[in-house]
Amino acid sequence: MPVTHFITHQINKEAQKPAAMVTTTANEAEVDDYCHLVMSQLKGTFVQRASKRYGCFNPEVTRFKGLTLNWLNDQQSFLSWTKKISEQFADMMDNTELEIDGYLAFATEELADTDKLYIFHLREKSNLCLTADMQLSESRILDFSNTGFVLCIDTSALKKEQEEGKHSEEKYFTFSFGRGDKPIQKLFSDFAGFIDTLDTEQETQEFLQIVEEYASTLPEDQSAETKTKVIEYCVEQDKQGEAVEFKTLSGQLDSSAPEKFEQFVALKKRERREVRPRSESTMNEGHNSELAQGESVIKTDLIPDRKSLKNYLRYSGKNKEVTLSFAATALGSDISFDPSENSLTIKNLPSRLLKQLKPESTSD
């Protein structure tokens, strides 16, 4: 992982106190094995989260974006930029009842096809350790499992937007809400000028409807298997932080007709009129994530919503007395639903449940 910068600044504010305190670092961290290890852990946490939102900068909120472009254009150092971001964010919390404790970690990486910027809200936790003379002592360590918000910007795409001189609504900005502290996370999202441009839940729901239509054209034994393969592939791509490419998925579903599913998805998307005008840059560059169709383009990839994927294969829910979870394939066979009565009829109960229901019977 080619990390090029890594620096942290401490930020603290108690709810009863009017001002947030920022302790800035004098120098960047050395990009060594420890730095790469921490970055790997933080990126892993970020990638596996299901609570990511995708968008771009709000054109009406220019402060954060302007400072970032100043750094990208070498008008200020990375260290100076991170200090200004930390201090200005802290200023927004002054005279509020918000509270925060921990660090803002700023990191950049250079990849083969793009450069990325990350901002992580880090927290610590207490732990015990043995000193050199074998005595117990308290220590403070980073609590990766309790990482707060994460911001990720494709800085290559941001610079391209600036060079073209027009606002882009591409998904080059990712924001992930962490555990707790929702007011703080929303404040930082607003401070950074993040706005959603992609509804992953809606797009995933549409995709799953198309999958259902595709599966209905297959023999019964292939239908369930195909749906399972689609979900498994999508979940795995989501865990790796990668988009679902319909072309790749299509080849995995049917090696004898590798374009069959891809073409079916494109056809159904056209029928739903889920298209947008082809931009000049797309016509000139032949953007590989879009399939040109006359005067319009159809998206050929998907950033999936993990919750929608899981609900597609299983129905689940609970209240104070009952917890239910069953495979979607069971509906209509072992399980039937009566919408007029809001009731389920279940046959072929698990043997373990039967033993609990009929303890006097040893034959079940």
Rank of each mutant, 00 (worst) to 15 (best):
S40K: 15
Q41D: 12
Q41V: 04
L42V: 08
K43C: 10
G44P: 05
F46D: 07
V47Y: 05
Q48W: 11
Q48G: 08
R49P: 00
S51M: 06
S51T: 10
S51F: 12
S51Y: 13
Y54K: 01
Y54C: 05
Y54S: 03
G55T: 00
G55Q: 01
C56D: 12
F57N: 04
N58H: 01
N58S: 09
P59Q: 13
E60Y: 15
E60G: 09
E60I: 14
V61K: 14
V61E: 07
R63W: 07
R63Y: 08
R63N: 05
R63D: 07
R63P: 01
F64K: 04
K65V: 05
G66L: 03
L67Y: 01
L67P: 06
L67M: 09
T68Q: 09
T68Y: 08
N70W: 00
N70Y: 00
N70A: 10
W71G: 04
W71S: 02
D74E: 10
D74T: 04
D74G: 01
Q75N: 05
Q76D: 03
Q76S: 09
S77D: 02
F78I: 03
L79N: 07
S80I: 01
K83V: 03
K84V: 15
I85S: 02
S86A: 12
E87W: 03
E87Y: 04
F89W: 07
F89Y: 10
A90P: 15
A90S: 14
A90Y: 15
M92D: 03
M92E: 07
M93Q: 10
M93K: 00
